[in-house]
Design a protein around this nucleic acid. Structure first.
Lengths: 231, 231
DNA sequence: CGAGGCCTTGAAGTGGTTCAAGGCATGTGG
DNA sequence: CCACATGCCTTGAACCACTTCAAGGCCTCG
């Protein structure tokens, strides 16, 4: 039952045999839970481990001494974070829970064992890594060259699509769990400006908020606002 | 003789047998050349190809309709660009020559053939991919959260270290082939501001320029300027 | 010698930041 | 059930880092 999401994603690349499914699930057997805000992988965590998210949102970020922080990506259910990182001597990022999160830590040994027994799983896992890099590059373009409104629109569209693909949203609306400060740290803006820009977007009818979730009402206009949004 | 650089890099991860060396070299047998400014891989190039750089600098970038452009990374000799991308349906970036460049195009088939015959090469190639993602994240942090001076310092340090590791610079100085407009497109600044900031850095003795190359005179002070520069 | 590419420089403008105060929820302990 | 603290969002006002526009200079190359 658990681990369905990573399976489903991989299965979209190539169909899986029962043995392969079981092997994938074995990566997520030891489930941990973290409350909102808790560090999942930090500078002091053992190296050569990465996170597989089962439920909830996490964020992958790096912060620097004087308090500045950059959120590199939001990690959603089914995400196995950057497995290539397992090969590096040191991890350069931290992962923290945005909502209550359940997850499994995956070690280099775990992953190589699975791949050695089921070599056919290697390719889809790399495909998944490729998607991650792809998103990272889109993020870089966004932060480097888009305006505040465009950056937020791009982020909303990305989250909307990713959540839709795991059945946690439809194209019209989804639950936004990140605080405005997190949105700021992800987009390279200040939280004050995020607040103002969101109001502006709401006034223009691009988004609509109710409670703690955002309702994207005009998916098409948001998309048209973001130049070159292929994802 | 050619292809020495990728071998040397991979060999730093694990030592290579002669057969493995030969296999790696086979990826770079068909050498092409591109003059400064020429497109190497564009939107119209066949998918499922990536570039292996033999000599010269290239840049990986994406540009959007209205002329804005973001350079994601500079590709230096020995770089095999994002092999995971070979698995994706579509490439989201272009590669162009910054200087005169010699390179080989590597297809998905080429790479899988090499890895199937020499499975021990898979890990070091992924390690190399891991480094690339690592740099991409540093780049994102830079563009999202650093000031103009810090961004340029970070970029110079990154290039200095990478060039030093392939014997094309020592820690004190290196040849800067990118124009100020390229530096701007890489750092998310305007070229005018790059010009001013460079002058400011020169006045402070952080860098010194002669001819078309930059001479980094105070590696230590640059490093101290950039918060959290682990690379 | 002229053209084009790249860099420089000034002046004006603006998108976004910072600081600071206040509002509105939610939770918690007395 | 109130009093208070805490976290998050909002709003205004001042400020600044960086952009844009525009003109001019200096190379290089045909």
């Amino acid at each position: 039952m658990i681990e369905l999401l990573l399976e489903r994603r991989i299965g979209r690349f190539q169909s899986l045999s029962p043995a392969e499914s079981t092997a994938l699930r074995s990566l997520g057997l030891r489930v941990s839970a973290a409350p909102r805000g808790q560090l999942i992988l930090g500078p002091d965590s053992p190296q050569n481990q990465t996170a597989l998210i089962h439920s909830g949102w996490a964020m992958l970020y790096r912060d620097i001494a004087d308090g500045r922080r950059q959120i590199m990506q939001f990690c959603l259910p089914g995400d196995l974070v950057d497995p290539c990182n397992l090969l590096l001597a040191e991890r350069d990022f931290s992962i923290a829970a945005v909502t209550q999160v359940t997850y499994s830590l995956v070690s280099f040994a775990d992953l190589t064992e699975v791949i050695e027994k089921h070599p056919r799983l290697a390719l889809p896992l790399l495909w998944s890594e490729g998607r991650e890099i792809y998103m990272l590059r889109s993020h870089l373009l966004s932060v480097g060259r888009l305006t505040a409104k465009e950056r937020l629109a791009a982020l909303f569209l990305e989250l909307s699509e990713r959540l839709t693909s795991i059945g946690q949203a439809d194209n019209q609306h989804f639950q936004m769990h990140a605080s405005q400060e997190m949105l700021a740290d992800a987009t390279g803006l200040s939280s004050v400006h995020v607040s103002r820009t969101l109001h502006c977007m709401q006034d223009e009818g691009l988004i609509k908020r109710q409670g703690h979730g955002y309702l994207i009402i005009d998916h098409a206009r948001l998309r048209q606002l973001v130049p070159d949004m292929p994802i």
